[in-house]
């Protein structure tokens, strides 16, 4: 009796446990990298890894919220919104600092609106999130193609480029921006009504509705927030790469989901958090970088990436389906 109680209690903390595992694996991978190549653990390389992680981490921020909101929530339009945002900012600003502000405002508004459309389609029209955001994704990619006529023009204004590649006191700006975002998201999830309700509604949407939670506002708003974070990612990505090309965001679609899951957030919603996603994003970036360092071919990298993910997830999910 006492034993089963203790087991249940331990399993109740499984989301915390999976966070611990993810941190452990990330440290282990870094150590392995260091063993093969001392340069891998040099401060500059570690900071560089973090800076690269920050873009994935930001892309996965919206994904985290959407997955937490439950109802099989997922946002596959993240990649397309990132691509569109980079293109929009670059074309509108045309490389001039003076036009950066309007460019950013327009980009953010468009990102939020696209997320809003996702949310409305999912909540009001009852389209499954997977289908809705996938469809949205191809619509946006089509728009990008028409808007740029296949040839994106312009480049990042100097200010944005500095933000994307510059450093302050040796620390890349990207990391600082990401840290700020992380702090805000952590605070919102932990202390604001929105965050607390997100976990509850994610766990049981019908119960949320019957307890008086404005579920429609909450869920639709969450998809809009995902659009917002994708737009932010696109803008920063432009700063990081300086110029843009078509479909640059595609590489983030599945890794954003992977980062969320590796970070211990349940795909069924209601459990997890953004700190886990941060660790997940770092872990995935370190793994990818390590495999590159080891001069592995594209195919081998893909295989090992997949195996690591599967092993991690099979450890996480070793918990009872129902209590």
């Amino acid at each position: 009796m006492a034993f089963t109680e203790r087991v249940k209690q331990r399993l109740g903390q499984s989301s915390r446990n999976s966070l611990g595992i993810a941190v452990g694996v990330a440290v282990l991978l870094t150590a392995v990298g260091g063993a093969f190549n001392r340069g891998f653990v040099s401060p500059s390389n570690l900071l560089n890894l973090l800076a690269i992680s920050s873009l994935l981490g930001l892309a996965a921020a919206g994904q985290t919220l959407v997955v937490l909101s439950g109802g099989e929530g997922i946002d596959l339009s993240i990649g397309a919104v990132i691509s569109l945002s980079a293109v929009l900012t670059s074309q509108i600003s045309n490389g001039q600092n003076g036009l950066l502000l309007p460019a950013v405002v327009v980009t953010l508004v468009v990102g939020v609106l696209l997320g809003l459309v996702n949310g409305l389609g999912i909540y009001l029209a009852q389209v499954p999130p997977l289908i809705m955001t996938l469809g949205m994704s191809s619509v946006i990619e089509g728009i990008v193609l028409v808007y740029t006529q296949g040839q994106p023009k312009g480049q990042a204004p100097p200010f944005l480029a500095a933000l994307g590649t510059g450093q302050v006191l040796g620390i890349p700006w990207l990391i600082i921006v990401w840290a700020m975002f992380t702090l805000i998201i952590w605070y919102v999830l932990k202390y604001l009504v929105y965050g607390r309700l997100l976990f509850l509604v994610g766990d049981n949407r019908s119960a949320g509705r019957m307890s008086g939670v404005p579920v429609a506002k909450l869920v639709v708003g969450t998809y809009a927030l995902s659009g917002f974070f994708s737009a932010c990612t696109g803008i920063l990505f432009l700063g990081y790469t300086n110029t843009t090309y078509l479909n640059i965001g595609d590489v983030y679609i599945l890794p954003s989901v992977a980062a969320v899951v590796v970070g211990g957030t349940a795909l069924s919603g209601g459990r997890g958090g953004y700190i886990g996603t941060v660790v997940g994003a770092i872990l995935l970036t370190v793994l990818d970088s390590l495999l590159t360092t080891l001069h592995m071919g594209e195919a081998t990298r893909g295989i090992i990436n997949g195996v690591v993910l599967l092993v991690l997830l099979s450890i996480y999910t070793r918990q009872p389906k129902d209590a």
Partner: peptide, 29 residues
Amino acid sequence: REGVFGQRSIYENIMIGRIATSPLWQRAW
């Protein structure tokens, strides 16, 4: 199905009574 939030704590399950209709950007606790 429509009552409890099974995976969430007792505390949260009760607290939601107070915050369900609060403005979303307000501090919850």
